[in-house]
Design a protein around this nucleic acid. Sequence first.
RNA 1: GCUGGAAUCGUCUAGUGGCAAUGACAAGAGACUGUAAAUCUCUCGGCUUCGGCCUUCGUAGGUUCGAGUCCUACUUCCAGCA
Length: 396
Amino acid sequence: MRFEIQKVLPNGLGRAGIIHTDHGDIKTPAFMVVGTHGVVKFVSMEDLHGLGAQAMLSNGYHLRRISGEIAEGGGLAAWSSWNGPTLTDSGGFQVMSLGSGLGKVVSMERELGVVNTAHKDRLAHVSEDGVSFTDPFDGRLEFIGPEESMQIQCRIGADIHMAFDELTSLADDYDYNVEALARTERWAERSLIEHNMHCDDLGYHQNLYGVLQGGRWEDLRRSTARKLGAMDFDGYGLGGAFLKEDLGDILRWCDEELPFEKPRHLLGLSHPDDIFVGAEMGADTFDCVAPTREARHGKIYTRDGNINLRKFADSTSLLDPGCDCATCAAGWTRGQLRALWRSGDPEKKQQYYNLASVHNVRFIVRLTEEIREAILNDRFYEFKEEFFRRYYEKNQ
RNA sequence: GCUGGAAUCGUCUAGUGGCAAUGACAAGAGACUGUAAAUCUCUCGGCUUCGGCCUUCGUAGGUUCGAGUCCUACUUCCAGCA
């Protein structure tokens, strides 16, 4: 893998570039679509290529039981028939979502009294070795540590792997973050060693990103960035549960310390505010379930702010007039889409999920394309201002 | 015409003496960020100083401390028999 930096923002952090992988190039900043199981929900591979998606993220945790099958199928890109660049997550997110955050929403808004799920109610428990967890669907007790995660990911064979990490929750205090971060750093070393034993097994090179945690504390963020930055990772994942207002600072702390020439992936964020902050502070790639999940839940992205489709029963307006996605190009109106969505007919609902997902994903992919163009043309800050002026102007 | 049965919040529906009244759908509001998520939360008779108050279960009476629930009549609808 090679990362070519084409242009750098005046702040010395944000940049536009190209990540060259064995399955193709990723022009950055870029949004990677999330196909946890190797499929983006309700969106075909043809749709994805059509809307300009450059890379797909899947999850080693979800694919763990069929990783051998995927290896036999030639690795994730071939097996899924995506045939482009891919990335897998280590399962680190599930340490939190099945553990301290079980049953909770990972919100970026300030909530009073965020509380972790009680230990006895968790499906995942962390130890020095790794994470023991109960499969939520079949109740089987399993274990994944750094070595297991690397073995699974190397069989799945994405171009980019994530080191096995522990994502802490907003409710975890400084002391717990110190402890968890030290563990994540030890896991990073173990991940690197194990990864290097298997990273060429499928006949092409697989890369490993180290993942930075450390919550909202500057000393933790900077020290882990220096520590992992000195290790031989191919790039870095920027992880954590953030409050929106902290995101810029946290990314800056990390990216000021990390080796500049290596690519960085901001894990799990894609709302426009977060993409802009990320791109400005040096994140090269992004992924997020929000565009597809929110589409299924009736939230449609538009350049004038997001809309809730429920309110547009009789609307003959396009989803986002001027949008270049396939759904808008085909002339679907808000009212028509709402009718499909609310229909009792499963086929119509599925059609809705497809049309709305394509639109929202295209919206975010296009946003990253535009940010890239703006960076290359020295007008990032102007573009950001234009975008938000329109996006937040009350107008709906 | 006779004999049964039924009428409840937009719709369907629960309810058999203590009820502002069940559930579903529809409707309305909000949430969702490395997918336990085609999901979840809230509202859904009116008013409220949030303690309550008022008006409600086809219509009109009655029995009862108390009636959506029991009785009588009427209205409408359904089924069966003429």
